[in-house]
Design a protein around this nucleic acid. Sequence first.
DNA 1: AATCTAACTTGCAAATTGCAAGTTTCTTTT
DNA 2: AAAAGAAACTTGCAATTTGCAAGTTAGATT
Lengths: 134, 134
Amino acid sequence: MLGDRWSLLIVRDLMVRGYRTFREFERSGEGIASNILADRLKKLEAAGILTAEAEETDGRKINYRLTEKGIDLAPVLLELLIWGAKYEETGAPCDVMVQMAKNREAVLSEARRRWQERDPAPLLPPFGKDSTEK
Amino acid sequence: MLGDRWSLLIVRDLMVRGYRTFREFERSGEGIASNILADRLKKLEAAGILTAEAEETDGRKINYRLTEKGIDLAPVLLELLIWGAKYEETGAPCDVMVQMAKNREAVLSEARRRWQERDPAPLLPPFGKDSTEK
DNA sequence: AATCTAACTTGCAAATTGCAAGTTTCTTTT
DNA sequence: AAAAGAAACTTGCAATTTGCAAGTTAGATT
């Protein structure tokens, strides 16, 4: 269900980067093709991991949002982020990741708070390709 | 690197099921094809997540073993196991998973102990398809 | 009314996967 | 010592899946 190249990245971007729309994913610099993105969003929705709802103020825009089942992946993603920062070149700022590793519980409750309150502020500052492109 | 259908399952089987050989993976009932298995083992080795070494007593057998980098994925896998048991039909015994969720640190240190001492005993009792086949 | 924008679709080529059937090297049995 | 058996892969090929480029559609702006 999450065993493909993109699904977990989409969940991560919803969770730590504060992405909400199709456009943001497309432009994130990760290079996912639009047809694949559409397909993954549909499958993640079918799996109950996220929901899609149109914005009231702009009927074109669709807001994707994690479900409870989706936000419950936060511990998995956090451990994976920490692992990746330790062993791979992720582009994530090293000192920030060290802090996160020291305060897992605080990071998780902050992630959940932002989810509950629909606070779109990213947990991590922009990193990777999206920090070098506008 | 882990973003495909099989890689994380292989790491999980090394970590919690105590698998060591090609044959055990093939027979596990997960249904991975032998060419894909060979390919994933090669790629995981190239990524520094596991090592392959021939057994002294039987020159045919190759023992696969996690590296430090590989065993450091334990927190990720544990959280994913817990998540899966909560939301999906994984076949893992429910009460065992509840205990694991309550004692994450103990489970992790036991996993690392078994890795260090090369103790092949599985962390979890057989579950899923491999518990119904011999 | 024309233009723009967001979220997709579609068509098709290229890469990946899965299946069945080998092959090779080493071990055990007769 | 020869034959049979095992373990760990390869190989060939068909079926999916992926990625790219170019639409399309519905709603917002100028």
